[in-house]
């Protein structure tokens, strides 16, 4: 029975992946759709990374700092050293991770709201510093970034899609492995009760820092991918909205799970784009606000828990 279910699940995973690979071909090569899908993938990685940190009980309100640092560092290095973009993206991620550890160090002793404010503040500080370092970052003018796949190649957006899809799969598998490993269990224990975790012999500080580093690393990679897809980076990348989206996606999909942030990103993006085609403007934001409130109150485990809920209702009957 158990084995069966596992098999079904793996099967479904494989089908999902194949579908994701074939999607652009099935729906012809439509660049708008590809752009939506690419951004969806980028934010899937980003939300999953944010969620990884949240799993340790640390809810960041300033993840745009890592998103932007990844993008800026990768763009600057690829521009000035001529390294291939695939390499600089990883460097961008490492740089974000280093900053993440520094921010994490100030956060280890902090509780929920305090941590939220400090991370929020760090995004503002990082933006100010980026603008002031105008020799390197171009100030408010920003700097061009190499395209992931040069525009001269036909169907370059489709190649970008496949590259980003591959990276996204790798990133999510790594996050999955982390969450299922000893570290994942430790993070959950810390979230549930820090004191008890300490008593159980878990080194809380080290694990919190590890979570910060890993989360910042993957966020930096996501940011760098977005920047190299756009081909330009400006300080707007540190915007408050950029910090808030992964929270919206993760909360609506389902916190502290692997599938939650993915599901949330897909569903919310789909709703967003469909409503756009109806010409809806503020209504979309109102709807997002309502969805967030309703989910926090009535479906705290997110959309991903709906089947579970339905099953429990049926079982009761």
């Amino acid at each position: 029975m158990k084995l069966n279910r596992l098999n079904i699940k793996t099967g479904i995973d494989i089908v999902t992946l194949i579908l994701a690979f074939l999607l652009p071909l099935i729906l012809e090569v439509n660049q708008y759709l590809l752009t939506v899908l690419i951004l969806m993938l980028v934010f899937t990685m980003y939300s999953s990374a944010w969620n990884l940190l949240a799993t340790s009980g640390q809810g960041s309100l300033g993840h745009a700092a890592f998103f932007g640092i990844g993008g800026y560092v990768s763009a600057i290095i690829s521009n000035s050293f001529g390294l291939p973009v695939i390499v600089t993206i990883v460097i961008g991620g490492f740089f974000a991770a280093v900053i993440g550890v520094l921010i994490g160090l100030t956060c280890v002793r902090l509780k929920a709201w305090f941590l939220a404010m400090v991370t929020f503040g760090f995004a503002i500080i990082v933006q100010t510093v980026t603008v002031e370092l105008s020799g390197l970052t171009g100030g408010w003018d920003g700097i061009p970034a190499k395209k992931l796949v040069p525009v001269t190649i036909t169907n370059h957006v489709m190649y970008e899609y496949y590259i980003i899809l591959l990276i996204a799969v790798v990133v999510i598998v790594i996050i999955y492995l982390i969450m299922k490993s000893k570290m994942g269990l430790a993070l959950e224990a810390i979230r549930e009760n820090e004191l008890e975790a300490k008593v159980m012999g878990i080194n809380v500080t080290v694990y919190k820092l590890k979570a910060f580093a890993a989360s910042a690393f993957f966020t930096g990679i996501a940011g760098a991918l977005e920047i190299h897809h756009f081909g330009y980076v400006t300080p707007e990348v540190y915007g408050i909205d950029i910090s808030f989206w992964p929270i919206i996606y993760s909360v609506s999909g389902g916190l502290y799970t692997i599938g939650g942030p993915i599901l949330g990103t897909v569903v919310i993006t789909a709703i967003w784009e469909v409503l756009r085609s109806f010409g809806m403007t503020y209504g979309r934001f109102i709807l997002i606000g309502l969805i967030l409130i309703l989910i926090v109150i009535f479906l705290p485990k997110g959309l991903i828990s709906i089947p579970e809920k339905i099953r429990s209702i049926f079982l009761k009957n």
């Binding site: 699940k9 479904i12 995973d13 897909v266 569903v267 959309l303 991903i304």
Partner: peptide, 8 residues
């Protein structure tokens, strides 16, 4: 849960 994911 991945079933819904694909469907969606």
């Amino acid at each position: 849960k991945y079933g819904i994911l694909i469907a969606v």
